[in-house]
Design a protein around this nucleic acid. Structure first.
Length: 425
RNA sequence: GGUAGAAUACCCAAGUGGCCAACGGGGGCAGACUGUAAAUCUGCUGGCUCACGCCUUCGAAGGUUCGAAUCCUUCUUCUACCA
């Protein structure tokens, strides 16, 4: 299977500027390709993973991937897919973000692969020296405003009189076009990939390559993921699922994949894992036959967690999951419990009196952050959704005392099926 | 710049002097059922209180009134039409 067939089978081909042309070009040998990542936060999230893993798929097929960190474009903000003007990030935040993002990019591609090592670029490197006047003369001249306003994300914002679009964001596509053109000239980069919302930016780059360098370049987009239930992929109650374990614990990361909707699980296996076709077909068959075993979900969670966080972290997350979803805590050793405690959010009990009469359960629920207010805590207890040390709390008058401490120092609070907090002293 | 209209809780949206912490829908949370699924059904969805109740909230600030989301004044923002 060549790379295009591979992507096709995985459902990762959304659009291509010139599929036959690209296929022909790939037959001739390795291609250099790039994908950009703007440092909008101090970590990438699971949504960024699809194009990033696609870069890696190309690398595994012998091509030369470039991960581009948007040190310059991040200063501006891509209007694609946004319905409102974005808040500009200040430079300090951006500097921090870019360092974090670069680190993550480094971990997911092979930079010392013999023959086709990956590269990491930062577009600030080539944008910083350019003056505004140079840019207008050397890049701006190749674009008509007519075609720029035809771009979907721009047009939508222009038609919406309530929000509008600033000149800054309007110009974004020129920056990304120049990224492609520059890398095409300087590094022989002939292909750009990205999410389907990047189509306009990519084609702008291809135009610029042709006009300025007289070179043929290609663009390929991967689909944006949609959940079967219509919700936004990669978001949980607490927000995005980040790759940084400090922002999304490995346990939560693992759980995110485990809880994938049945209807999406096979698609996500194809998108997010490197498992070969036979294995995924096999998992699909198992899933169809015995969905309650959730073999596909487990494989998905295992693969992606290992990919991002490694074997050891995966093992911890799996163990914690087994304990937390396994029912009673009786018989769990302190060492095992400590594994669990390391995986779920933890709060200090130091300021809480537990001797004598102890503290009402409601106060602890508020302290833990599981409930917003004491009133909410009471309702949750009344609804039967609160568990202390995995035993359902009956009655709102329950007082928690030092007798409830596990191993003399921990309390395991739970709301609903899967919201855990460990309180420790 | 002129004229008309709008602003309600996470979102949409009803309410046009007391029965309003505010209908309904969405979303969210929880329960039942299950497979840590989907679908379905049930409860909850401003704060404090065991509770009677109290406090804060209907764009902002003032005012009228025994009593205001609701009436008046000013301001802010948005929308429509006109210039």
């Amino acid at each position: 299977m060549n790379i295009l067939q591979e992507l096709e089978w995985r459902g990762l081909l959304m659009d291509c500027t010139d599929m036959p042309g690209l296929a022909k070009r790939l037959e001739k040998g390795p291609i250099t390709l790039y994908c950009g990542f703007d440092p909008t936060a101090d970590s990438l999230h699971v949504g960024n993973l699809v194009p990033l893993l696609t870069l890696r798929r190309f690398q595994l097929c012998g091509h030369l991937p470039i991960a581009l960190a948007g040190g310059a474009t991040g200063l501006i903000g891509d209007p694609s897919g946004k319905t409102t003007e974005r808040q500009l990030l200040n430079r300090e935040t951006l500097t921090g973000n870019i360092a974090c993002v670069k680190n993550q990019l480094r971990r997911l591609l092979e930079f010392d692969r013999p023959g086709n090592p990956a590269r990491l670029h930062d577009n600030a490197d080539w944008f910083a020296p350019i003056t505004f006047l140079d840019f207008l003369r050397d890049v701006g001249k190749y674009f008509t405003v007519n075609m720029m306003i035809a771009k979907e994300s721009v047009r939508a914002r222009m038609e919406d009189r309530e929000v509008g679009i600033s000149y800054t964001e309007f110009s974004y596509m020129l920056l990304q076009a120049y990224d492609f053109c520059h890398q095409c000239g300087a590094f022989d980069c002939e292909l750009q990939i990205g999410g389907s919302d990047q189509w306009g930016n990519i084609t702008a780059g291809i135009d610029l390559c042709r006009k300025k360098l007289n070179r043929q370049a290609y663009g390929l987009t991967v689909p944006l993921i949609t959940n079967a239930d219509g919700s936004k992929f990669g978001k949980s109650v607490a927000g995005a699922i980040w790759l940084d374990p400090a922002k999304t614990s490995v346990y939560r990361f693992y759980q995110f994949w485990i809880r994938t909707d049945d209807r999406d699980v096979i698609k996500l296996l194809k998108f997010f894992t490197f498992l070969p076709k036979e294995q995924i077909d096999d998992l699909a068959a198992q899933h169809a036959q015995k969905p309650e075993a959730r073999a596909a979900h487990k494989a998905l969670a295992r693969e992606v967690t290992t990919l991002i966080h490694g074997e050891a972290a995966l093992a911890d997350a799996v163990r914690a999951s087994e304990i937390l979803f396994g029912g009673e805590l009786t018989g769990v050793s302190e060492a095992t419990f400590n594994d669990v405690a390391g995986e779920v959010p933890t709060k200090s009990l130091d300021a809480t009196p537990l001797e004598g009469a102890g503290t009402p359960i409601g106060d602890l629920l508020v302290l833990s952050g599981l409930c917003q207010s004491k009133g909410q805590a009471r309702k949750d207890v009344e609804g039967g959704g609160i568990y202390l040390n995995n035993t359902r709390v009956e009655g709102t008058h329950r007082n928690v005392t030092s007798a409830d401490l596990l191993f003399g120092k921990h309390l395991l609070l739970r709301k609903g099926k899967r919201n855990y907090v460990v309180l420790s002293r």
